[in-house]
């Protein structure tokens, strides 16, 4: 137990873009409740600069939240060459959908691919399981 646990983890605001991933989609076809689906879904991909700001390591869990919801997912370094600090990527899944606001401006279409969240290290907290999402 270090002194670190008494310090608040740094918190940063990020914009999230969701995307599709064929491996995650394959896992979904096999089972929504399987380990593989959680492993490939409950992830947020971050720019190395944002990882540094959060004072976490690649693969640590983070709390991602906004007024719509809160989930704990694994933070991973994205492999994009260009810097995208301030923007995070999440694969389209119940985890990302926990955070998509319900506002639509009356259009019937939520902002699935453009919403704001705050991210903070979860200090080893467990990834939110699919049955805990609801």
């Amino acid at each position: 137990m270090g002194f670190g646990q008494f310090l608040a983890s740094p918190e940063i605001k990020l914009k999230v873009v969701t995307y599709r991933d064929v491996f995650q989609n394959t896992a979904q076809e096999t089972s929504r409740f399987g380990e593989e689906y959680e492993k490939s879904s409950a992830v947020i991909k971050l720019d190395p600069k944002d990882i540094a700001k959060l004072a976490i390591k690649d693969g640590d869990t983070v709390i991602v939240k906004n007024s719509s919801g809160r989930v704990v997912v694994k933070a991973m370094k994205s492999d994009y060459e260009d810097s995208h600090a301030g923007i995070a990527y999440m694969v389209n899944s119940p985890w990302s959908n926990s955070l998509v606001p319900d506002e639509t401006g009356g259009t019937g279409v939520p902002k699935f691919k453009n919403f704001e969240v705050t991210v903070q290290g979860a200090k080893g907290g467990k990834v939110t399981g699919i049955s805990e999402i609801f």
């Binding site: 929504r32 719509s68 919801g69 389209n92 899944s93 959908n97 926990s98 319900d102 609801f134």
Partner: peptide, 15 residues
Amino acid sequence: DPLSSLPLSVSRYLA
């Protein structure tokens, strides 16, 4: 599977 594919803030009402 709307509980997976819609925002939870919207689909929650289905339950």
